[in-house]
Each structure stands twice: as C-alpha cells, then as structure tokens.
Write a protein that binds this DNA or RNA. Structure first.
Lengths: 239, 239
DNA sequence: GCCGATTTGTCCGTATGTATC
DNA sequence: CGATACATACGGACAAATCGG
C-alpha cells in the first residue's frame, strides 16, 4: 500500500490512538490538513473516509471532523477482521497451535454446493482444523477451498497458516469476505474435538472469501467456544 | 440523498439484484458507465466504492468490476444493519410488538459509565424493552440514552419506536454505530422476560450509536434468543 | 517477450453547494 | 452577512495491471 491517502490515514489513526486528538474533540480542518500533509483536498478526504469507515471519526458538515474512538473499548479476544488466526492470536497475546483433522479433495454435490455457495461439480479441498490457545481447544474450523486456487497445499502447511501460504507462495490476495454470525448447538463432533466445558452452544461464523480477482474461493465455518468469542463491527447508516 | 453518485449506486444495485448483471460477471467498464450516466469518471468511482463496501461487487485492476452478490444468500432473520426493530421485523415478514419494562432517569455512576462509555455524572434515560414476534418474547433490550438527546420521550413512544420519534420529532439523525457481538449466559432476569425454551445462552449485541453531530447518545444491549439471531457483515482487507 | 489498447487506481486543481457559527 | 468547513462534482493526468495480437 503505497498510496498517499493511506499513509495519511495511518498517521491520523496513530494520533487518535495515541491521544493526540482525544475522544470527542475535532481534528484539524481539511484545509489545515492539506497544508500539513502537502496534498490536495481530495486526498485528505480519501483518508478521512477510511477513518470514518473504521469507526475512528465522524464528520459534521459545517463544523468539523470529530473523534469517536474510545481508548480501552474493543480490545481483547477480537476475531473479527479479515486476518489469519495467527495474526488474531498474536494480537490477543496468545500462543496458538493448529491441529489438522481432515484434508481431502471432494467434488461438490448439491448439499455441499447449497451450503458453501460453490456450484455442483466444483472440485474442492475440504479441511478441518482445531485451534488451540490459552490452554484449550477453542475453535473448530471446517473449510472448503476451490481446489484450483490452493495448488500444492499440504496438511503441514495447513497446520501453519493457509493464508500466509496462499498470499506468499501462490501470490493470491484475499480481499472481500461475506460473513454471517449465528449461534448453534454443539454437536457430538464439537464436543469431541473442542474443550467445551459445560457449554452446549457455539458461536458460528460463516465466512465466504473472494480473492483479488473476485472469485469465490473459500467458505469456512469457524465454531467458537462462547467465552472466547467477540465480534466487532462499525456500521454507517444511509449512504 | 440527492447525490448523483448515490443514485447511480442505487441503480446499479437494483440491476445486480434483478439479475441484469449476474453473479461472477463483469459490469460495464467505468468509461462505459461514464457515457451511460453522463457524469465523470470520479462520480462513477464513488458509486462503485459504495457497491464494494456493501459487498455487491469487487474490482480488479486492469480487468473490470465483478459481481459477487449471490441471490438467495443472506435473507431471513437478519438483524444486522442500523435500522429500527420495526424495520427489521417488517423485512423479515413478522408482526412485532414491544413492551416497555423500565423507563427511568438516572445519573451515570462509575459502573454505568464504564459499561456504557458515557462519563460519570452524565444524565441518562434507562429503558428496558421486550420484543415480541413470531409468537414469543425473543429480544430483551437494555438501553441508556443521553437524556439531553431524548427530550419529550415517553414510555408510550418507546413502545412504538424510539428511533422514528428521534428522527422525526427531534430531527436527530443516527449515523454511526459501533457494535460488539458476544455470547452470554442467560440470567434469571432473561428467563423471566423472554421465552427462552431450554436455551441457556443469548447472543448479545452491544450497540453504541452516535448522532449526526458525532455525539455518543445511546448504548444498548440487545439480548437475542439464539435461534432467532443472524448477523451479517462484509469486510474488506487492506485499505 | 514485447507492444498497444483497455481498465482500474491514485492524485491534482478547480468550482459550486450547503451547513455552522 | 461573511468566514469557515465539509460535500459533491468536474476534467485532466499519469500509474499499474490485464489481455490479446
């Protein structure tokens, strides 16, 4: 990311998180930022748009751009953004390991196609992984990858990080993801592979990801033990 | 919303949902859209950005803009967007009623302030509501509003729709919302007011909303019975 | 492998509108 | 009313990626 607007976004974000622009105060006006960063109006606006989308600021016509990010809120055990399990675990300060439970090629029948969003007949790689951290098996991932997109993938790689392999070795870029979050009863299988204590339900995140060419190449269900699940989101009404 | 880019966004969205531009196909290039809509490059790009943010399309440099929205996916029992409970219920085709359980003015002590994000000493209106639809009490809302933002609000209005009142009568506009989703054990109170069957956990959405001036004016915890909870989201990696 | 046409991505400079104070 | 600040749009320029010949 070598774009100017993105550098400005990161700089402003840092200042907000560092308290240079505190909660509920106004950041400098667009024209001041234009002078400060030596770019144009439009480029500043681009950066401000990203700040808004990420829930850091809110702009008010005729008044200014107000900081709405609060320190302390939204921190621990967050598994929301598109990021690898390793990234999320590291950000939460946890040692994490992954055990691969299944790794097999299948052809999508109607049942799989309906569930995953792939087409009947698509060749898929079915992977099941168990995520261990903080002393317990806490997440059970069931994934279907489009086989043609994961050439050369092995169980050993899957136990490390599939996404780092895809992005590094295959040069694939993960960009957009459609997610749904639901709660489901734990199955016998869940109880077998996870350390569920006395929990009888799970938080299930269905994730359909698209690569940089807009091709749907993965559907994953992540089944989380409830006490380790937090999902974050910021929404903007209207336009 | 009188902006040109927004009209173009809505038009393209309609065409995608109507199947004019089917799943996985490319929509016309920017230059073709410029001619079709009689505006500039930048205005088209603005519309495309909104389409991307809402998970309808994905753009690939040098190739085009591909449709990634699938008909049928993401439909029923969705309570994700910033919208009133009535809007959501109506979209899901359900008759809905609301019972107001508490309605009282309080001053934020440290406990309330920490939980809600308001400051100690802020005057707040505490409201508890029970949402009934599909034949059962399914959602339990506990809200704190900034008192100065909800002048004239009555329990009767709260049983209808607080947001319609705020937007209509008070001219307030709800714009940004920070949400966290977690799972929690049902309390004795939950069991008292909701028809929980044998569920012992709830999906809890904490919602901090800001008005059009960027002022935090509401924190609500919506406690959903698990079988009626689905949350949707689309995420974009990188910038 | 190279070149040129196409397409998206970024940025500039300017102009006008609208809301706030 | 004027100054300030954000919102939208125009038109032009160049960079970067893709694709076909």
């Amino acid at each position: 990311m070598k774009a100017i607007y993105y550098d400005i976004y990161k700089d402003l974000r840092e200042k907000i998180m560092a308290g240079v622009y505190p909660y509920q105060t106004f950041i400098p006006s667009e024209s001041k930022l234009v002078m400060e960063y030596g770019c144009t109006h439009n480029t500043i606006r681009r950066a401000l748009q990203v700040l808004m989308l990420h829930g850091f600021v809110h702009s008010v016509r005729g008044k200014g751009v107000r900081v709405i990010w609060q320190a302390g809120h939204r921190t621990r055990f967050v598994f929301g953004d598109i990021e690898t399990f390793r990234e999320a675990a590291a950000r939460n300060g946890l040692e994490a390991t992954t055990q691969v439970r299944a790794f097999e090629y299948v052809v999508a029948d109607k049942r799989i196609a309906d569930a995953t969003g792939f087409a009947v007949g698509d060749e898929l790689l079915h992977v099941e992984r168990i995520r261990h951290f903080d002393g317990a098996n806490l997440i059970f991932d069931k994934s279907y990858f489009r086989a043609s997109c994961v050439e050369g993938l092995t169980p050993e790689i899957a136990s490390d990080s599939i996404f780092i392999y895809l992005e590094g070795e295959l040069g694939m870029e993960v960009t957009i993801s459609n997610r749904t979050i639901t709660m489901e009863y734990a199955t016998a299988e869940d109880r077998e592979v996870l350390d569920l204590l006395d929990f009888d339900m799970l938080a299930v995140v269905e994730n359909r990801t698209f690569n940089s060419e807009g091709v749907h190449f993965e559907t994953t269900w992540s089944r989380h033990r409830p006490d380790y699940f937090t999902f974050l989101d910021t929404a903007v009404r209207g336009c």
